Amino acid sequence: MALKEQAQEVCLVCGQHKTEGIHIFNQLICDSCQKKIVETDVTDWKYKYYMNKLAKLRIGKCKKSLESAVVHAGTGGEAEKH
């Protein structure tokens, strides 16, 4: 039996087609870009570049779902939905 190929998506930061990474509001940030963002110092010129890319996240579609799912920290460190 052949393994099903993963669908490639376009990374929000580098614009390349990738299969692995994190999704923020259903938009992919590939593993490579995620690592670069995390490792970039705020005084580095690249930091502003990455922040400008992240500013393009389309969160308008998800605004309603964010407003209806307020998450509060529980006493034991677990998250509780209210």
Rank of each mutant, 00 (worst) to 15 (best):
C14Y: 00
I29A: 03
Y47S: 10
G77K: 07
V10Y: 10
S32H: 11
G21R: 03
T75R: 11
E20P: 02
K56W: 01
I29S: 01
A69W: 05
H17T: 11
N52I: 04
G60D: 04
E9W: 11
V38Q: 14
V13P: 00
K61P: 07
Y47R: 11
H72A: 08
E67G: 10
C30S: 08
K53T: 00
M51G: 00
H23N: 13
Q34M: 09
K64Y: 03
K36E: 09
K63E: 13
L57G: 08
Q27H: 06
G77D: 04
H17G: 09
H72R: 13
Q34P: 05
H23G: 07
A2P: 12
I29Y: 00
S65E: 10
R58Y: 06
L12C: 04
K53N: 08
I24S: 09
A2V: 05
A2S: 14
E80M: 11
E67K: 11
K56V: 01
T43A: 12
L54W: 02
A55L: 09
G15D: 01
H17N: 15
H82G: 10
C30N: 00
K46R: 15
K64D: 13
K53H: 06
A73K: 11
T43W: 02
K53L: 02
T40E: 10
K56N: 09
C11D: 04
C30W: 01
C33V: 01
A73E: 14
Y49L: 04
S65V: 13
V71M: 08
S65Y: 13
Q8T: 12
E80K: 10
H23M: 15
I37Y: 04
H82F: 14
K46N: 15
L3P: 02
S32L: 05
K36N: 12
I24R: 07
A2L: 12
G21L: 03
A79E: 07
A79P: 04
W45K: 15
L3M: 13
S32T: 13
Q34F: 13
L28H: 01
G60N: 11
S68T: 10
Y50M: 06
T75V: 09
T40L: 07
A7M: 10
N52F: 03
Y49N: 06
A79K: 06
H72N: 13
K48Q: 15
Q27N: 03
C11H: 00
A69Y: 08
D31C: 06
Q8W: 01
K18M: 08
Q16S: 14
K81S: 07
R58M: 04
G15F: 03
H17W: 11
L54F: 05
V70M: 12
S65W: 07
C14P: 01
E80H: 09
C14H: 02
H23W: 11
Q16K: 15
M51K: 09
Q8D: 13
V70T: 09
Q6T: 11
K35N: 14
K36W: 02
N26P: 06
Q8H: 08
Y50Q: 03
Y50T: 00
Q8F: 09
Y47I: 00
K4D: 05
G60R: 09
Y47V: 00
K81T: 06
E78K: 10
T75C: 05
V38G: 15
E20R: 12
